[in-house]
Nucleic acid binder design. Structure first.
Lengths: 340, 340
DNA sequence: TTGAAAGCGCTAACAA
DNA sequence: TTGTTAGCGCTTTCAA
């Protein structure tokens, strides 16, 4: 039998409401009573029933997240762990937990979310991937329920989001290559329906334009966030007559595929071609040569998202875009291009 | 304003209990009423408040998991994502969600667990890492609260657990090397306080003994689940006079460190030395050469753990050890050793 | 400073 | 087959 507030009250010779007040540090309560009640709580091993509390308080102190689908979002997977750690670390600090769920067989994300929201199991929701015209964002927006998206929405301006400045990041990367002498720069992009793909591509294009460098459609290849895509992209690009001297790749795993293909074909990196990619996952320092990559601060994104969402729940802030700084990690996959 | 069971009742002209019965498919309820109530529920967009339901039912339909500490359990990290996916997939199917929490700064795992359990936020708990004399297992055992451990307990026999047969797996690996001609086999182990380390080491030792092969203390090196450990282990082992012709490594990441060091020193794998490791994480097929590794079925472990725990919650089964089969993945890091 | 009582939204005897 | 009622464990007016 669990010990309730009534048991404590009876044992301490006070009323349940007094015990309740002690629990929540109510200001107007005598030190003696407080001490007495606290002692009894310890003795009895009392812990408040959070369900009951949540029911009357109308809030669960819980954040919700929908587990991304396996195949579709492999991308997210590779740093899922670090991301979750960021969320939970911050949430726990403020007394929130994280509830994870997923759409069952036929039931999609939208239903899973509705269930959480209307079922009052969570006070806010974190959306992991932002696709173009994301229906989930629209749903949450309509329900006027607190949520934060990782990435950004192409439809709604005034929402809570945590993102990298992917356009800027891609611009920086492009300029970095330009600064070490490259003039022909290719781009291996990710799935077009993801906003992150779109933004990075934009940054690349803009940087080339600004530098008045040549841009060719065949230098841009789109693929999945898979090693194979890198391999394919590589072979398509290397077979060009006038091929790039440097390649920007949208993700480390893809870059690994590129690297692998290059090695197989007998090319040397960075002597024959320079490679730089995004996300800086574990693997990027393990490749041969170690990959230059853009650190995007996954843990911090999780941490910040959590923080922003909780603030939104508690203070009602519901429109803010937080940008997590990125940073180019220089390793050995890029080399200066000497004039010739 | 959320729509409650009362609103539905009033609108449908029935009592709240009737609505409740419709929700839970009570057998004795007329088709007409059912239809009418369901219609109203749809119209009003009704969803049951799970907190209220949980409060009266005394169960939350939620599983709990404590996020492993960063540094200590890097090991778990690498397949965290796949593991969680397994848990959530199965849990969702049966209508359970997963609640994640972590010890705040000073507050340790035990407190976090007590809070979840006594606070009634979860119906059962999944323990991710099993250390020797794990205090958390003891705590849960004492509270008589449903839980399942991934791995096994060295103290308690009669608990719920999902594990690989790590002793057998290590035996299999050792025998595999023996079968292709190796007689001098080394072992790079993990942290001694983890049961998985202990079991794999045991399996290795037993297999050698059974084959009446030589075993030398200096062929066994213990380290962390880190690349660096592999590097260190490698240099210690390769500097021996009579060194092994094959190495069993406790984890792919560590094996990567070994591989790297070997390459740096000019050794060739598998010509100069064969390497095989455990866990079969993404990285193991990306190395050069691709690593032979033991697939341990992480997703399935999560899935099974979830299943076992829910069964325990609902039917009271509380003592069962489920073994997930392992399987050696043959790639290019092992070569037969010819007699000489 | 403390207590009594009502109620959060739901389920489940018991009665009808 | 359906309704009435009590109560899950907590918070919070209102009164004392």
């Amino acid at each position: 039998m669990p010990v309730t507030i009534k048991d404590v009250a009876k044992e301490a010779g006070v009323s349940p409401s007094t015990v309740s007040r002690v629990i929540s540090n109510h200001p107007r309560i005598s030190p003696q009573t407080t001490a007495k009640v606290k002692k009894i709580m310890d003795e009895l091993g009392y812990h408040p029933n959070m369900l009951a509390k949540s029911l009357v308080m109308q809030k669960s102190k819980t954040l919700g997240i929908i587990l991304p689908r396996p195949a579709e979002e492999l991308f997210v997977n590779l740093f899922f762990s670090e991301f979750i750690r960021g969320i939970v670390a911050q949430a726990s600090r403020i007394g929130y937990d994280l509830l994870m769920t997923s759409g069952v067989t036929q039931m999609d994300e939208a239903d899973a979310i509705t269930k959480l929201v209307k079922g009052k199991k969570v006070d806010g929701i974190i959306i992991l991937t932002s696709r173009k015209k994301d229906p989930v964002i629209k749903l949450l927006q309509e329900m006027k329920f607190p949520f934060v998206v990782i990435g950004r929405s192409d439809e709604f301006e005034n929402i809570l989001s945590v993102d990298n400045d992917n356009i800027k990041a891609a611009t920086d990367v492009t300029n970095y290559l330009i600064s070490i002498g490259h003039k022909r720069i290719g781009f291996v992009s990710g799935p077009a329906h993801l906003i992150v793909s779109q933004d990075r591509l934009t940054g690349y294009t803009e940087a080339l334009k600004a530098a008045q460098l040549e841009t060719k459609p065949e230098w841009i290849v789109e693929g999945e966030f898979l090693q194979e895509s890198g391999y394919l992209a590589m072979s398509s690009i290397m077979s060009l007559e006038n091929r790039p001297s440097a390649l920007i790749v949208t993700d480390d795993l893809v870059a690994y595929g590129v690297l692998r293909g290059l090695t197989e074909l007998g090319y040397k990196v960075p002597e024959d071609i320079s490679i730089i990619s995004f996300n800086n996952i574990t693997i990027s320092e393990l490749t041969n040569p170690p990959l230059n990559s853009v650190e995007i601060g996954i843990y911090q994104m999780g941490y910040t998202a959590s923080q922003l969402l909780i603030r939104s729940i508690e203070d009602g802030v519901d429109s803010k875009r937080e940008l997590i700084p990125h940073r180019i990690i220089t390793r050995q996959s890029c080399a200066p291009l000497l004039e010739k």
